[in-house]
Simulated scan of single mutants.
Amino acid sequence: MKPIKSLIILLLIAVTSYSCTSDSNSSENDFTDLEASVKFNVSYGDNEFQTYDLYLPENRDVDTKTLILVHGGGWTSGDKSDMDAFVELIQNDLPDVAILNMNYRLVDNATEAYPTQINDISSVVNHLNANLETYQISSDFGFIGTSAGAHLALLWSYAFNDLNQAKMVCSIVGPTNFTDPEYIEQIDSEELQALIELYGLDLTTTFLEQVSPYLQVTEDAPATILFYGGKDPLVPASQGSDLQDKLEALGVMHEYTLYPEEGHGWDGLELLDTWSKLKRFITENLD
């Protein structure tokens, strides 16, 4: 699910570039002056992949909200650096928001996708909660996820948001229902084999329902914004439209955008439209 990277890169090019001075020192106790500060590779667990980058805005206080970014990569690859363009966009257009850009453990012979990666999001949230006073931020946050990262963000927000801290979640071409026949029929043999290896041989099992955001969402879900491509070769449009219908039926605040001629990523006017809608949605639901 790597084409999403081109979307992020082009999105950065499409808006005014922004630069900031950052501090790469990983000490977590030097925020007393409340100047803008950046912490790279803060550990939230013992595994080398369990790190995040934290971007704290100047003049923050206990009401400052945080956006948690979750990268894609088919659950088996990718890195938080893939979301750096989103970091710059947020810093430029939403300068009062803190940003947490996370890595998580990737699937390999010794690591299962579920519940490992969901547990990593929970660990990040717990680590954030333990450091609210140090960081001088609110306990409220939102998610932006792309592709596989969007699936993880949705699933955590719908099934693991026990304290209702997640106030909004954005899915950009994220899978939502692994039992959807259209999803199984559309993905190619390589992607299907990867899915089988990740989630088991029986693609209609209760387990697949458990890891499908569409089948876990309730009326208590946070505000949700969805972006999908009508010609996506990896994630069919039904993954977004079906979730939209369910959110509508449950009365959950949501927005849905389908770009009929786009695939697993887009550019041009559609790209500008995505950021414009997402920026407004964040402002309205993470305030």
Rank of each mutant, 00 (worst) to 15 (best):
L203D: 12
V235R: 02
P222F: 06
T205A: 15
A166H: 00
E255L: 14
D232V: 04
G251N: 14
A159K: 14
L203P: 00
L198H: 14
F178S: 09
M168A: 01
Q193C: 09
V252T: 03
G230K: 11
N177H: 04
L195Y: 15
K167H: 00
Q186K: 15
T204E: 10
T224N: 04
Y259K: 14
E197Y: 09
V252Y: 01
G240K: 05
H264K: 12
T218G: 11
Q216K: 11
D188Y: 10
T206Q: 13
T224I: 07
L247V: 10
D188C: 14
S171K: 03
L163C: 03
H254A: 09
L155C: 11
F178N: 12
E190W: 07
E185M: 06
S212C: 05
L226I: 08
G174F: 00
L152C: 11
H264V: 13
Q186L: 15
G240F: 03
E248W: 03
D245A: 04
P233A: 02
G251E: 14
A237K: 14
G263L: 14
D232N: 02
N177K: 01
S241H: 02
Y158P: 05
P233I: 00
F207M: 12
P233N: 06
P236D: 05
P260I: 07
G263D: 12
Q210H: 07
Q165Y: 06
A159T: 07
